Amino acid sequence: MRLTLLYRDDDLVAVDKPPGLLVHRSRIADADAFALQALRDQLGRRVHTVHRLDRPTSGVLVFGLTAEAARRLSAQFQAQRVVKRYLAVVRGWPPAEGAIDRSLDDPEASAAGQRAPRAALTRYRRLATVELPVAVTRYPTSRYALMQVQPRSGRRHQIRRHFLHIRHPIIGDTSHGEGRHNRFFRERFGLHRLLLHAWQLSFTHPMSGLPLDLEAPLDAQWGRLLAELGWTGALTTP
């Protein structure tokens, strides 16, 4: 496996993680391929984990090429000084903009009685909507929206769980989504994936102190979907 490099210097490397790829080995998931291992083999050198993306989520993923750079950038993530922008397709039409302020627990830690729910905040903005003349559920039509999402914290499955909470689950989410709409997108658009993409990442370079803006372009599947739904011109860069 060769990962697409989005950025590289002496301290950091950013890749475009494809959906379905774990960031690193996990005792709760069975897999043979990992982004950390693949990138290490591709570059022929050690790389250091800075942050994570859920296995089904695609997009910008940053690693440190030195332990110090990774430590400093990880501290920015923990201090919520990194601006993260995602794109998502959800069921229904959420408000034009808003925030979801709901504490979330870590399912593994909670099961072991180790951690209480932690504060979590997700801001969002609606970019486009569509109403299709298809009765996926009991309604004669089905509504969907393209969202720009900005999580302020980094809890496990935060965006997915927050949008489920406001009853606008992300399409393709088999853990926190709605099966009938997921099935419709598989049959109608041939999409067997979570429609959540880590689009842009902005932070201060941990070593130079200069601002750094990274972006993972949407792949061909996303492009075809945007075209079919009439959303091609909906993306804007803040």
Rank of each mutant, 00 (worst) to 15 (best):
P94M: 15
R161N: 07
L87C: 06
R115D: 04
R161F: 04
R118I: 01
H168R: 11
P94S: 13
A116S: 08
G98T: 02
Q150P: 05
A99W: 07
W93V: 15
R118L: 02
D105W: 07
G92W: 06
H168K: 11
Q148N: 03
P133F: 13
R91D: 15
Y144Q: 15
R167H: 11
L164C: 09
L146R: 12
E97I: 11
Q150C: 09
I100G: 00
T137K: 13
H168Q: 14
S110P: 03
H157M: 04
Y86R: 10
Q114V: 13
L132D: 08
R155N: 01
L164R: 05
R152P: 08
V90K: 09
A135H: 03
R102L: 14
S142P: 02
I166E: 01
H168Y: 13
R123F: 06
R161Q: 07
G113R: 05
R138Y: 11
V89I: 12
A109E: 11
A96K: 12
R126S: 13
P95Y: 07
R138P: 14
Y124L: 11
V149G: 01
E97M: 14
R123I: 05
R155Q: 01
V136C: 02
G113N: 06
V134E: 08
I166V: 11
Q114H: 07
H162D: 00
S110G: 10
A99T: 06
H165Y: 12
R160L: 09
R91W: 13
E97F: 12
G113I: 08
L146H: 10
Y139C: 15
R123G: 02
L104A: 02
F163K: 04
P140S: 14
R143V: 13
L87P: 07
R138F: 15
L164N: 03
P95E: 12
Y86N: 09
H168A: 12
R155P: 00
A116R: 05
A135C: 06
L121F: 05
A116F: 04
A128K: 12
R138E: 14
L146M: 14
R152M: 13
G92E: 12
P95L: 07
S153W: 02
P107C: 13
S103L: 00
S103P: 04
R126Y: 11
A99S: 11
E108G: 01
P151G: 03
Y144F: 11
F163M: 09
T137W: 09
H165C: 05
S103W: 00
F163S: 04
R118W: 00
E131L: 04
P117Q: 03
T137Q: 15
T122P: 00
Y139P: 09
A119T: 07
P140R: 13
P117F: 01
R156M: 03
T141D: 08
T129A: 13
